[in-house]
Protein backbone atom coordinates (compact mmCIF):
# COMPACT_ATOMS: atom_id res chain seq x y z
CA UNK A 1 0.00 0.00 0.00
CA UNK A 2 1.07 3.56 -0.72
CA UNK A 3 0.93 5.78 2.39
CA UNK A 4 0.95 9.54 2.73
CA UNK A 5 1.94 10.81 6.17
CA UNK A 6 1.23 14.12 7.86
CA UNK A 7 3.08 15.15 11.04
CA UNK A 8 1.48 18.05 12.89
CA UNK A 9 3.46 18.31 16.12
CA UNK A 10 7.02 19.20 16.95
CA UNK A 11 9.55 16.68 18.25
CA UNK A 12 9.99 15.90 21.97
CA UNK A 13 6.97 17.89 23.24
CA UNK A 14 4.53 15.51 21.59
CA UNK A 15 4.46 11.79 20.88
CA UNK A 16 3.19 12.46 17.34
CA UNK A 17 6.51 12.54 15.49
CA UNK A 18 7.76 9.42 17.33
CA UNK A 19 4.53 7.62 16.44
CA UNK A 20 4.83 8.75 12.83
CA UNK A 21 8.42 7.52 12.67
CA UNK A 22 7.54 4.16 14.18
CA UNK A 23 4.60 3.79 11.81
CA UNK A 24 6.72 4.65 8.77
CA UNK A 25 9.53 2.31 9.82
CA UNK A 26 7.05 -0.53 10.38
CA UNK A 27 5.28 0.13 7.08
CA UNK A 28 8.58 0.06 5.16
CA UNK A 29 9.58 -3.12 6.98
CA UNK A 30 6.37 -4.72 5.72
CA UNK A 31 7.13 -3.65 2.16
CA UNK A 32 4.74 -0.71 1.89
CA UNK A 33 5.56 2.50 0.06
CA UNK A 34 5.74 5.93 1.69
CA UNK A 35 4.71 8.46 -0.95
CA UNK A 36 5.60 11.50 1.12
CA UNK A 37 5.83 12.78 4.70
CA UNK A 38 4.43 16.27 5.08
CA UNK A 39 5.32 18.36 8.14
CA UNK A 40 2.82 21.01 9.19
CA UNK A 41 2.03 23.22 12.21
CA UNK A 42 4.84 22.74 14.78
CA UNK A 43 5.69 19.55 12.90
CA UNK A 44 8.06 21.70 10.83
CA UNK A 45 10.41 21.64 13.84
CA UNK A 46 11.16 18.02 12.97
CA UNK A 47 13.38 19.43 10.22
CA UNK A 48 15.91 21.67 11.95
CA UNK A 49 19.45 20.31 11.99
CA UNK A 50 20.23 22.51 15.03
CA UNK A 51 18.34 20.11 17.28
CA UNK A 52 20.70 18.88 19.99
CA UNK A 53 19.04 16.46 22.40
CA UNK A 54 20.92 14.95 25.36
CA UNK A 55 23.23 12.15 24.22
CA UNK A 56 21.24 9.42 25.91
CA UNK A 57 18.04 10.45 24.11
CA UNK A 58 16.92 9.69 20.56
CA UNK A 59 17.75 12.29 17.92
CA UNK A 60 14.41 12.66 16.18
CA UNK A 61 15.68 14.92 13.40
CA UNK A 62 18.70 12.77 12.51
CA UNK A 63 16.44 9.74 12.61
CA UNK A 64 14.20 11.27 9.91
CA UNK A 65 17.23 12.24 7.81
CA UNK A 66 18.68 8.72 8.03
CA UNK A 67 15.34 7.15 7.12
CA UNK A 68 14.95 9.48 4.16
CA UNK A 69 18.41 8.67 2.87
CA UNK A 70 18.04 4.91 3.28
CA UNK A 71 14.59 4.64 1.70
CA UNK A 72 14.57 7.76 -0.51
CA UNK A 73 11.57 9.22 1.29
CA UNK A 74 10.28 12.65 0.37
CA UNK A 75 10.29 14.78 3.56
CA UNK A 76 8.42 18.02 2.89
CA UNK A 77 8.18 20.96 5.27
CA UNK A 78 5.35 23.42 4.66
CA UNK A 79 6.81 26.78 3.64
CA UNK A 80 4.16 28.95 5.32
CA UNK A 81 4.36 27.04 8.59
CA UNK A 82 8.17 27.05 8.37
CA UNK A 83 8.39 30.81 7.87
CA UNK A 84 6.34 31.43 11.01
CA UNK A 85 8.57 29.14 13.05
CA UNK A 86 12.00 30.00 11.66
CA UNK A 87 12.77 26.90 9.62
CA UNK A 88 14.64 27.82 6.44
CA UNK A 89 16.77 26.33 3.69
CA UNK A 90 19.42 28.42 1.93
CA UNK A 91 16.98 29.79 -0.68
CA UNK A 92 14.30 30.69 1.86
CA UNK A 93 16.87 32.30 4.12
CA UNK A 94 18.20 34.45 1.28
CA UNK A 95 14.74 35.34 0.01
CA UNK A 96 13.66 36.53 3.47
CA UNK A 97 16.89 38.37 4.20
CA UNK A 98 17.99 36.08 7.03
CA UNK A 99 21.56 35.36 8.07
CA UNK A 100 21.34 31.57 8.37
CA UNK A 101 19.46 28.44 7.41
CA UNK A 102 18.78 25.39 9.51
CA UNK A 103 17.06 22.73 7.41
CA UNK A 104 18.20 19.18 8.09
CA UNK A 105 19.52 16.82 5.37
CA UNK A 106 16.82 14.98 3.45
CA UNK A 107 14.14 17.62 4.08
CA UNK A 108 12.86 20.11 1.54
CA UNK A 109 10.61 23.14 1.87
CA UNK A 110 7.56 23.39 -0.35
CA UNK A 111 3.91 24.42 -0.40
CA UNK A 112 0.66 23.02 0.94
CA UNK A 113 -0.05 21.67 -2.54
CA UNK A 114 2.35 18.86 -1.64
CA UNK A 115 -0.01 17.79 1.15
CA UNK A 116 -3.01 17.78 -1.15
CA UNK A 117 -1.11 15.92 -3.85
CA UNK A 118 -0.03 13.28 -1.33
CA UNK A 119 -3.62 12.96 -0.10
CA UNK A 120 -4.79 12.37 -3.66
CA UNK A 121 -1.99 10.05 -4.78
CA UNK A 122 -1.66 7.89 -1.67
CA UNK A 123 -3.94 4.94 -0.95
CA UNK A 124 -4.10 6.06 2.68
CA UNK A 125 -3.30 9.37 4.32
CA UNK A 126 -2.33 9.01 7.97
CA UNK A 127 -2.28 12.10 10.18
CA UNK A 128 -0.18 12.22 13.36
CA UNK A 129 -1.08 15.09 15.66
CA UNK A 130 -2.67 16.26 18.87
Amino acid sequence: MKFGIMVNEGPYTHQASDSAYNFVAAALEKGHEIYRIFFYHDGVNNGTRLTTPPQDDRNIVNRWSALAEKHEIDLVICVAAAQRRGIADADESKRNGKDADNIAPGFRISGLGQLLEASIQADRMVVFGD
Binding site: Y40, A80, A81, L112, L115, L116, I120, D130
Partner: peptide, 19 residues
Protein backbone atom coordinates in the same frame (compact mmCIF):
# COMPACT_ATOMS: atom_id res chain seq x y z
CA UNK B 1 -3.66 27.56 19.24
CA UNK B 2 -2.87 28.03 15.55
CA UNK B 3 -4.62 24.87 14.33
CA UNK B 4 -7.80 26.58 13.10
CA UNK B 5 -5.97 29.28 11.15
CA UNK B 6 -3.51 26.90 9.53
CA UNK B 7 -6.33 24.44 8.75
CA UNK B 8 -8.12 27.20 6.88
CA UNK B 9 -4.94 27.90 4.91
CA UNK B 10 -4.90 24.25 3.82
CA UNK B 11 -8.53 24.44 2.70
CA UNK B 12 -7.95 27.60 0.64
CA UNK B 13 -4.81 26.26 -1.06
CA UNK B 14 -6.41 22.84 -1.46
CA UNK B 15 -9.35 24.32 -3.36
CA UNK B 16 -7.11 24.61 -6.43
CA UNK B 17 -7.00 20.80 -6.62
CA UNK B 18 -10.74 20.62 -7.35
CA UNK B 19 -11.48 17.69 -5.08
Amino acid sequence: TIYALEALEVVLIGAAFEQ
